[in-house]
Amino acid sequence: MPHSPSRTTGRAAVLGSPITHSLSPVLHRAAYAELGLDGWTYERHEVTEDGIAGFLAGLDTSWAGLSLTMPLKRAVIPLLDGISETAASVEAVNTVVFGPDGRRSGDNTDIPGMIAALEERGVHSVESATVLGAGATASSALAALARVCKGEVTAYVRSEERARQMRRWGERLGVEVRTADWARAAEGLRAPLVISTTPSGATDGLAQAVPATGGTLFDVLYDPWPTALAAAWHGPVLGGLDLLVHQAVLQVELMTGCRPAPLAAMRAAGEQELRSRAG
Rank of each mutant, 00 (worst) to 15 (best):
S24T: 12
G106W: 01
G151L: 09
A31F: 02
S4H: 00
H246W: 09
A30W: 00
P112I: 12
K73G: 10
L250M: 10
E161Y: 01
T61K: 09
Q251L: 10
V210K: 02
L35K: 00
A228D: 11
A116S: 06
A30H: 00
P78L: 05
D38S: 12
G270I: 01
A12L: 06
V220C: 06
A31K: 06
R7D: 03
E273L: 02
L59Y: 10
D110T: 13
Q165W: 08
S159V: 11
I115D: 05
Q208H: 13
L66R: 01
S139L: 07
S62Q: 03
L206D: 13
V237R: 00
Q272R: 13
V76C: 14
V131W: 01
A269Y: 01
A207M: 14
A186L: 03
G151V: 06
T213A: 15
W40M: 01
T41I: 12
T130M: 05
D101I: 09
N108A: 15
L193E: 09
E43Q: 09
G16C: 08
G122W: 01
S105N: 08
T198Y: 09
P71T: 08
Y156D: 05
C149I: 04
I19M: 07
E119V: 07
T69E: 14
V157D: 07
A163I: 12
K150W: 00
P262A: 06
T109H: 11
A143L: 12
L35N: 00
G58E: 08
L193R: 03
D110W: 12
T69W: 11
V93T: 12
A202S: 15
S140D: 12
I115Y: 01
A261F: 04
R259H: 06
T20N: 11
R158N: 08
E91A: 15
A228K: 13
V249K: 04
A265Y: 01
A212C: 02
Q272C: 05
P5G: 02
V76K: 08
W169Y: 15
L37S: 08
M70P: 13
R277G: 11
R172I: 10
R44W: 04
E160I: 05
R162T: 04
E271C: 02
R7F: 03
H234R: 14
R184A: 15
G235C: 08
P192A: 12
A191N: 02
P262E: 06
T154E: 07
G215P: 08
G188Y: 13
E43I: 03
T95P: 10
Q247R: 06
V14C: 09
H3V: 11
R74C: 13
V148E: 04
R168F: 09
R277K: 10
D101Y: 10
A53Q: 02
G205R: 13
A191M: 06
L241P: 04
I77L: 11
L23M: 10
A143E: 12
A248G: 09
P192I: 07
E171Q: 15
G16S: 09
P78E: 00
A202D: 14
L142I: 13
A31Y: 03
S24Q: 06
A53Y: 00
S276M: 09
E120F: 08
P236Q: 00
G39N: 05
A117E: 05
G151S: 04
P199A: 14
G36Q: 04
Q272S: 14
S140Q: 14
G65R: 02
W40F: 10
G65S: 05
I115H: 01
G201N: 15
A191D: 11
A248P: 09
R172L: 15
P100N: 07
D107A: 14
K73H: 13
H234Y: 03
